[in-house]
Structure formats: C-alpha cells, structure tokens
C-alpha cells in the first residue's frame, strides 16, 4: 500500500495536492490528519495542514494479481486476458492448452476460482465488485449447450409423456433451463433434491402431481 505525506493551508488543499501527486480520485484514498491547520495572526504562528494519504488497493488489480499467482502455481502455462465489463465489474478470460483443468467437471473448478477471486477483490472494497472468470468462452458455450439440452429433453418429455430428470446442476444453470422452457407450450419445469444434488425435472404439462 502506498502512503504519502502532504501539506496545504487547509485540509482540502492538502488533500487536493495529494490526489494530484498520486493521480488518484477521492474514492481511491483514505487519509489521516497528522496536523490540524491553524490560521495564526498575519501569517505568524500559522500551521499548515499535514495529511497522510494512503492509496487504497485497486480491487481489480488485486484480483488479477491473485489469479495470476494461482495459475502460476498450477503451472501449466495458462494466460489471463482481462477486459472491462462495466461499472463494478471485471472479466478475466483464461486460456491455454490445458484449459480443461481450470474448468473442471461441469465448470466446478472455474466456479471455485471465480468465488475465491471475488473474495480477494472485495476484501478491501466497500462497493461490491463482481468478477467473472471465463475460460475460452466456456460460459457462453455452456449456456448454448444448456439451451439445446433443455429443448431436446422438453421434446422427449412431450413425446414420451413422461417426466425427464436432468443431472444435478448449479443454481445458475438450473435457472437457465427454467428460463429456456418458461414459455414452452407442452412442458413445465421444477427443481428437486437438495444441494449439491439439486436437479431439474421436466414434466409434460398437467402431470406435476403424478
């Protein structure tokens, strides 16, 4: 963490000087008043304000450093590309030969990495910063795959007039399936079982209670 000491006639002036020096905005720093300014008499006995200004760690930077460090430990030549995803959001895309390793079964490893990175990023920040970690567009591909799966199994439920149970999925993935089939004319969806075995069941309309 970077700390500098600045002076000025008033606290505001000292703060402005410090922000200039650090090239930072007011939200990025904390300060402590070391000496309270005194007006004095005809500039005699006057005291300037002295502040110690600390630059808060930048959460996106912290998160990226953390992720880079973790990938370095895993040591299979993975790379990170960061992109700006908008206000209070950041996105890191991981790529490399052994990309499957950071995705894991049903994206479990990727979820874990994303969870840990979000914890690190939000340790020092008061506003919640959301970090999305992706691996060679896995998330988008997975979403498309889930949509197709949902439609295919909905057809099956309709054709056979029987319930179709899916394999366990994370809440976010179940939501995607519910949404995909929300306006389907022939089937309904619900979730069954307890985490981490909670899964979707697709039923032909009018059969929920069987």
């Amino acid at each position: 963490m970077k700390t500098i000491s600045v002076t000025g006639k008033t606290v505001e002036e000292a703060l402005d000087n410090g922000l200039n020096e650090l090239q930072a905005s007011r939200e990025q720093v904390d300060y402590v008043e070391i000496q309270t300014p005194k007006k004095g008499f005809l500039n005699l006995f006057s005291k300037p304000a002295i502040l110690e200004i600390t630059l808060r760690p930048n959460p996106v930077g912290e998160a990226e450093d953390f992720l880079a460090e973790v990938l370095r430990c895993i040591d299979v030549g993975l790379e990170i590309e960061s992109s700006d995803a908008g206000e209070q959001k950041a996105r890191f895309d991981i790529s490399g030969d052994q990309i499957g390793m950071v995705i894991g079964k049903r994206g479990q490893t990727l979820e874990a990495l994303q969870y840990l990175t979000n914890l690190v990023a939000n340790r020092h920040s008061d506003q919640y910063l959301h970090i999305e970690i992706d691996a060679e567009n896995y998330r988008e591909r997975r979403e498309k795959a889930l949509e197709q799966l949902a439609n295919r199994l909905a057809e099956k439920a309709k054709r056979t007039n029987r319930k179709v149970a899916l394999e366990p999925m994370q809440a976010k993935e179940r939501k995607k399936i519910h949404q995909t089939l929300q306006n389907h004319s022939a089937v309904d969806t619900y979730s069954d079982g307890k985490e981490p075995r909670r899964h979707i069941v697709i039923t032909p309309k009018g059969q929920e209670n069987q």
Binding site: C73, M101, T109, E111, A112, Y115, L116
Partner: peptide, 16 residues
C-alpha cells in the same frame, strides 16, 4: 465450509 470447498476444488484440479 464454502471457502474450504473452493480451495479444495482448485487444489484437486491442480493435482490432477
């Protein structure tokens, strides 16, 4: 144990 599980998940993947 949510954090511990996440650490384990990453560790297991790295230990493949």
């Amino acid at each position: 144990g949510k954090i511990a599980s996440a650490i384990r998940a990453v560790l297991t993947a790295a230990s493949k």
